[in-house]
Nucleic acid binder design. Structure first.
Length: 431
DNA sequence: ACCCCTTTGAAGCCC
DNA sequence: GGGCTTCAAAGGGGT
């Protein structure tokens, strides 16, 4: 299995970027030294109560310098989860596939596709804010690319029903998830049965270094890379909205655009964290509304230690690195639909929401107190930050929490103003 | 069926 | 370079 620090960096094959990341890590270290105390203070302020003193706990131990409150919270959280497991007797409680390190998020082998592609054809709930053809398996987790560096990650036993190991595909079919880039040349045989014999993702400029590196890193992978002159994307999972809906416009340009898959942005650290923690919050707080869950997660995010956050920042960093290698020409602008980018490459239709639409949010948190004020809530909930943050949390100076990888980060960070303020409050302030 | 909500972070654009 | 905007995930709720 890939390790956070160690061999996986070679797979990415970007020494320069890795070095840069290293430097950032060093900078982070420096910042952490100077700001560690502030962070602890902030975290302590985020904690409302903690009384329990129990035996040692692995989660608490894994925190670098957890204050008493954090320790108690960790214990509370774990105890609560334990209680949940016992109480629900495995019925309602479903062990989260996300529990543990994000690298290990393997909910389903059927998630054999590129995480950055979205496809409504595959996704039953591929509801994006647009009608862009998106390629994403419903249960796709975003970190599969990183996962796929491990040949042991997949086995025939774990294969989804539709998976046929005898179908002339690699035992590590996930490898085929990578090389995707619009306008590519090479294609892969999709590992899934329903894709047998069908070309898969084209690779820009032939075989991308990342793809080659990945292929080389997987002993059992026999990539059936068949160079082709086709520039289209015949993968059934990459469907054009217009053609699929039978409303293919006449414009050649539009037709060309429709052939381009919608490459999603790589997930940032918080998004990765959310994916991992969301099931836990749902289980603990009995909340279903994502808005409420996200509020809780946002608060929890700030209560994480810098080491814990750094873990996700590193993951996000690698995600971006991998993404950049898979799609060298891709730009976040491609997915933009903004007044400043009316001719964006994306086929994403205009959203009625315009920048100010978010400003229209009523100031002040929606106080989703129902999240954990439900009868099922437990006192332990508070330790798990199940209570959304009605009062704006103490302002945390983001730079010391996490290494700002780029100057853009700092810019963006500053643009957020009070970084830890709830969005509604930030918007209110902006207004 | 579609959009909103809500979070943080990354990246792009504008001045 | 600073400020602002958009998008990434998620899914219940509202229209």
């Amino acid at each position: 299995m890939p390790q956070l620090n160690g061999g996986d960096g070679d797979d990415l094959g970007a020494n320069d970027e890795l070095i840069a990341f290293k430097d950032e890590g060093e900078q982070e270290e420096k910042r952490n030294v100077s700001a560690g105390r502030d962070l602890d203070d902030v975290k302590s302020s985020l904690v409302n109560e903690s009384e329990t003193n129990s035996s040692s706990d692995s989660e608490a131990d894994r925190r670098s310098k957890p204050g008493p409150d954090l320790e108690s919270r960790a214990r509370h959280s774990q105890l609560f989860e334990e209680a949940l497991r016992r109480r629900q007797d495995g019925g309602l409680f479903q062990p989260s596939p996300y529990v543990g390190y994000p690298f290990f998020m393997i909910p389903d082998l059927g998630n054999i596709c590129n995480p950055y592609l979205a496809n409504g054809a595959l996704t039953q709930s591929a509801r994006t804010s647009n009608n862009v053809p998106v390629v994403q398996h419903p249960h796709m987790t975003h970190l599969h690319p990183l996962l796929s560096y491990s040949p042991e990650a997949f086995s025939p036993q774990r294969a989804s029903p539709g998976f046929s190991p005898d179908a002339g595909m690699s035992r590590t079919p996930h490898a085929a998830c990578y090389p995707v880039s619009p306008g590519g040349m090479a294609q892969l045989t999709h590992p899934l049965g329903w894709l047998q014999g069908q070309p898969m993702y084209p690779i820009a400029g032939g075989f991308s270094p990342a793809a080659l590196a990945m292929n080389a890193s997987m002993s059992s992978f026999s990539p059936r890379l068949v160079p082709t002159s086709q520039s289209s994307i015949p993968h059934p999972a990459i469907v054009s909205t217009g053609s699929e809906a039978g409303s293919l416009p006449d414009g050649q340009q539009e037709r060309e655009e429709e052939k381009k898959p919608h490459i999603k942005k790589p997930l940032n650290a918080f998004m990765l964290y959310m994916r991992e923690e969301r099931p836990k919050v749902v289980a603990q707080c009995k909340v279903k509304e994502s808005a409420t869950i996200n509020q809780i997660l946002g608060q929890r995010w700030h209560s994480l230690t810098k080491e814990e956050q750094a873990k996700y920042y590193e993951l996000a960093r690698k995600e971006r690195l991998l993404h950049s290698k898979l799609y060298p020409g891709w730009s976040a602008r491609d997915n933009y639909v903004s007044p400043s980018a009316p001719l964006s490459l994306t086929t994403k239709p205009h959203r009625t929401a315009h920048p100010l639409s978010r400003n229209a949010v009523t100031p002040g948190p929606s106080t989703p107190s129902s999240s954990c004020d439900t009868p099922t809530s437990s006192p332990l909930m508070t330790s798990s930050r199940c209570s959304p943050p009605p009062p704006p949390p103490p302002l945390i100076s983001q730079p010391f929490l996490v290494p700002p990888p780029t100057s853009a980060h700092q810019s963006a960070a500053s643009s957020h103003g009070a970084l830890t303020q709830p969005f509604s409050l930030r918007r209110a302030n902006q207004l």
